[in-house]
Nucleic acid binder design. Structure first.
Lengths: 198, 198
DNA sequence: GCATTAGTACGTACCGGTCAGTAACATTGT
DNA sequence: ACAATGTTACTGACCGGTACGTACTAATGC
């Protein structure tokens, strides 16, 4: 028999990790308020005290879910479709294109962070704070990319793209076959009109 | 004493109406799931049985709230700022301008109908059904107005404007001083690029 | 070598509170 | 009279959260 390595491959899969995964799935699909902690732990195959050993409260778990969401959001945003882009225009259009096709698919539920901000209007909610912080960074990044495109008013173009993207998030979950179909065309229009000499 | 007219000025203010008003305020500001029926009746100055004499359930009350919301939405949309517009471009820009300034103000909470769709992802929820129906009509109306502007692809422009507007709704409640500031400029860019000969 | 101890990771069972909704009856105004 | 509303009290389900017991492992003492 080989003796065990330091931290062996067959990890025990900590209860906290199972809870994070379960919470992510449920909170995203059904909303945070709609899901009780019992449902989270049941699906994770663990028990409630395990949840409260790793998370101070349901709000805290929700915040953790959104931090995870934020992480995977950026992975996807910076490499849309798994590709890296050096051209800002191509980069943004690739993201929007990929997003738009997800948004018209069945069962799409928009942006977990935006949804959380809708569910929790109070500023001192931990989940909302994660969402607000994320959106601030996202806005800055889009303005940066807009500048990279050579826009005359990069802040206006960045904001316009943000409005468009948030529009995709929210309308995508209202109906299939929604306005997200036109998003790429709209973005091109917006970018070209902002960049052209005028 | 003068005897009362048919429907006199000093209306008795039915319990159902007080409940509708109270529910509208609370559901809009804090979200539907966040508000209990007790809070609704307390604020209305009535009692719970009165609620359930006029509404079959909380879901039913939520749907009524959204129907009211839909009504006042259209009043505002068709006469933004109290003015009537015959020019489609002016009309849409006036609506967006008026919306954008509300959206950057403190305490803005977005579109009650969109928010409800976020809170209730399940298609068979009565509140969501009202929201979905409304959005379908709104989309049609925007495409109509885009056609009225002489857009080459009215459906694309209409959808683009819808995405922009929904973006204002949702970002407006995430932060003051948000991207809605750039909404009018973005809309102009979008419209002009869609209408110009090409 | 083997019991003792400590620490970790987890489950069982339960708490008090709040939720939506209701039953039965009293009160009011016209 | 009768229709609309208030009063009171209740239900059963569910909610977030916790006190407490238990299995397993690793280190320690002798």
């Amino acid at each position: 028999m080989t003796k065990k390595a330091e931290k062996p491959a067959e990890a025990p899969v900590r209860a906290a990790d199972r809870i994070r995964a379960s919470a992510s799935e449920l909170f995203y699909r059904e909303g945070i308020r709609a899901v009780g902690v019992d449902e989270v732990v049941d699906r994770a195959g663990v028990t409630k005290p395990s949840l409260y050993r790793s998370f101070a409260s349901k709000d805290d778990l929700a915040a953790a879910y959104l931090r995870d969401y934020d992480l995977s959001f950026w992975e996807n945003f910076e490499r849309p479709g798994g590709k890296t882009y050096s051209n800002a225009r191509d980069h943004v259009l690739a993201y929007i294109s990929q997003l738009a096709s997800r948004a018209v698919a069945k069962g799409y539920r928009g942006c977990g962070l935006s949804n959380a901000a809708v569910e929790y209007p109070s500023r001192d909610n931990p989940a909302r704070q994660v969402a607000e912080a994320h959106k601030k960074v996202f806005r800055k990044r889009l303005r940066e990319l807009a500048a990279g495109m050579g826009a005359r008013q990069p802040n206006v173009l960045g904001d316009a793209l943000l409005l468009l993207i948030e529009g995709i998030y929210v309308t995508g979950q209202q109906s299939e076959d929604g306005p997200a179909q036109s998003a790429v065309a709209a973005a091109k229009l917006l970018i070209d009109a902002s960049v052209k000499a005028g």
